[in-house]
Simulated assay, not measured.
Amino acid sequence: MKASGMFKGIVLGLLFAASAGYANAQSQEGSGYWQDIQKSGVLRCGAAVAPPHVIRDPQTGEYSGTFVDLCKKFASDALGVKAEIVDTTWDNIVAGLQANRWDLSMALNQNPKRAMAIAFSQPVVEYQVSGLYDKANPKFSQPPKSITDVDVAGVTIILMSGTSIDGTLSPQIKNATILRLPDIDATRLALSSRRGDILFDDSDSNALFSATGKDRWVTLNPEPAISKQGIAFGLRRSASYSDIQSLNFFIQEKSAIGEIDRIAKGYIDKLAGDIKQ
């Protein structure tokens, strides 16, 4: 009888523990990254300027861009809340997220250092270094496919001085001449005036400039790549796997139906029109 009583006690104890664990799991299901935002009614998106992904109108202070549109759509379509765009800088884009000043950081390059501090969604778009050249340039009668194809004596490569692209690409150049200039306007002017033959910059900047003369400029995306990273949403480390998957499924759908490409192209065309003016 004593042994039987002990056995019953153990069984009851196990059942109680299981029941408590189940109840705790149920309570946790009602609390999470997105559930907390739904309770507050607002999805806060941290914004540092990075056209065409994040654009700020200098006159009105209003934000637009590919990531801004996606933030608003995810807020309304997936969460049923309003989106609030929170102004920040690139120096604070990660720290502000960690400090819970906003819920998503927009248009972050994925890299190992940041991944130690925050979580990432899957890439929305890709960042890479591309080349831009005039299709009428006789030095490129055969379209180049790699850095080796442009690292030729007599070719002048245009770079913005002191950038990460300068630091990454310059050591690879053995035969071509490198023309380093102080800012993006100077590099574009050098390319347009044929002071140099090919401009290497991030693909977004080159896409914007290329759109100003679609019949003139040709883009080189080197294989192998000079530098290539995903550009994604950043989340706090408290986001669970299922939280991140919810955002990823949203991104996957918008990408599959071509909506992300359409949004991005619209902003690139608009910015290119502004540059022409």
Results as ranks from 00 to 15, higher is better:
2 K>L: 07
9 G>V: 10
10 I>D: 10
12 L>R: 08
13 G>Y: 06
15 L>G: 09
17 A>D: 12
17 A>V: 12
17 A>E: 09
18 A>K: 05
23 A>P: 00
23 A>Q: 11
23 A>F: 08
24 N>Y: 14
25 A>M: 04
27 S>N: 11
29 E>S: 07
31 S>E: 13
32 G>C: 00
38 Q>F: 03
42 V>A: 07
47 A>C: 15
49 V>K: 02
49 V>G: 02
50 A>T: 10
52 P>D: 04
57 D>K: 12
57 D>L: 07
61 G>F: 13
62 E>A: 14
63 Y>N: 10
65 G>M: 10
69 D>H: 06
70 L>Q: 02
70 L>K: 00
72 K>L: 06
73 K>I: 07
75 A>I: 02
78 A>I: 03
79 L>C: 15
80 G>V: 03
81 V>K: 08
82 K>L: 09
82 K>D: 12
83 A>V: 01
85 I>Y: 05
87 D>H: 06
91 D>R: 07
92 N>H: 12
101 R>V: 02
104 L>Q: 02
104 L>N: 01
104 L>P: 04
105 S>P: 09
105 S>M: 06
108 L>K: 01
109 N>T: 14
109 N>Q: 14
112 P>K: 06
112 P>M: 13
114 R>S: 11
115 A>E: 13
115 A>P: 03
120 F>Q: 01
123 P>W: 06
127 Y>P: 00
127 Y>H: 08
130 S>I: 00
130 S>H: 05
131 G>T: 03
133 Y>L: 14
133 Y>T: 12
134 D>I: 04
135 K>I: 13
135 K>P: 04
136 A>S: 11
136 A>I: 06
137 N>T: 07
139 K>R: 12
139 K>Q: 14
142 Q>M: 09
143 P>I: 09
144 P>I: 08
146 S>Q: 02
147 I>T: 12
151 D>F: 11
152 V>H: 03
154 G>M: 14
157 I>A: 02
158 I>D: 02
158 I>N: 00
163 T>R: 12
165 I>N: 13
166 D>E: 10
166 D>N: 11
167 G>M: 08
169 L>E: 10
170 S>E: 13
174 K>C: 08
174 K>R: 11
175 N>H: 15
176 A>W: 03
176 A>I: 02
177 T>I: 09
180 R>D: 14
181 L>T: 08
181 L>G: 06
181 L>K: 05
183 D>N: 15
185 D>C: 09
186 A>L: 11
191 L>Y: 01
193 S>Y: 09
194 R>L: 14
195 R>P: 08
195 R>H: 09
196 G>C: 09
198 I>C: 03
198 I>W: 00
198 I>Q: 02
201 D>I: 08
204 D>L: 09
207 A>P: 00
207 A>S: 12
209 F>H: 05
210 S>R: 12
219 T>D: 13
221 N>D: 13
221 N>C: 06
224 P>N: 13
226 I>D: 06
229 Q>W: 05
230 G>P: 01
235 L>A: 11
237 R>S: 13
238 S>W: 14
241 Y>G: 05
243 D>R: 03
244 I>V: 09
245 Q>F: 05
246 S>M: 11
246 S>I: 06
247 L>A: 07
248 N>Q: 15
249 F>S: 12
254 K>R: 15
255 S>T: 15
256 A>C: 00
256 A>M: 05
262 R>I: 10
264 A>M: 14
265 K>H: 12
268 I>Q: 02
269 D>T: 05
269 D>C: 04
271 L>H: 01
272 A>I: 03
273 G>V: 05
277 Q>V: 13
